[in-house]
Design a protein around this nucleic acid. Structure first.
Lengths: 108, 108
DNA sequence: CAAATACATAAGTAATCACTTATGATTTTG
DNA sequence: CAAAATCATAAGTGATTACTTATGTATTTG
């Protein structure tokens, strides 16, 4: 999560993910920072296993490893469950109130 | 995402989310940092709208607002799609290879 | 009403971060 | 083989961050 928290780095990751494979030069072209900065971001993405690198001649091609997003997805799902559970509880609470209201109406 | 990138702050958020409502004191008890540090983390969680605060007497109760995780979930889903698409392509490629192999076997 | 409690804010600090320029290592090209 | 190209690493720097202690502000309690 820390690896993706920086906007520049996240943009780099997104560009890698949206193309099958990208060279450092291509990434630098679209980034607003210098080539060394891009390389440094790539290093932290590598360490987070969010990308893998393949050297070919004097180029290095990076590709995304979205599998590494799975822990984050799992973490999130946990809270989506809690979230929908809360909504369910609210729903049943409201339905309960409606039933009680109808009963009160009948008594009148 | 930046608000959740710090482990201490994330732990605080998790504790808030797992209980319906929590006071600052209760959070401080389980955190490994001082009470002011907890309050500061709560402030950034508030600014990220990941929690809401309710003052009651001299206590402040925090509760999670998991709805704010939705943008992050949406961002993630995008890459899960890419990921499964890639797997599908790999699958069909392997199946294709298998078919070709069978044809070669028949010719022998 | 004075002391205690619960929390927030202020101020200061060491560590980390994202960037820069300079340079190194390797590979291709003319 | 020298020059160019591609990328990584080194070193330095300003900004940000996560924390601390000290203090302020309400609110409750004895």
């Amino acid at each position: 999560m820390r690896a993706l928290s920086d906007p520049t780095r996240r943009a780099i990751f997104e560009r890698i993910a949206s193309s099958r494979e990208t060279s450092v030069g291509a990434l630098t072209q679209h980034a607003r920072v210098s080539q060394p900065a891009v390389s440094q971001h790539l290093k932290t993405l590598l360490e987070a296993r969010l990308v893998i690198a393949r050297r070919e001649g004097r180029n290095t091609y990076y590709r995304a490893q979205p599998r590494s997003l799975e822990p984050l997805a799992a973490w999130l799902q946990q809270y989506e469950r809690i979230w929908t559970q809360r909504i369910d509880r609210l729903d049943s609470y409201l339905q309960d109130m409606q039933r009680k209201e109808k009963r009160r109406a009948r008594k009148r």
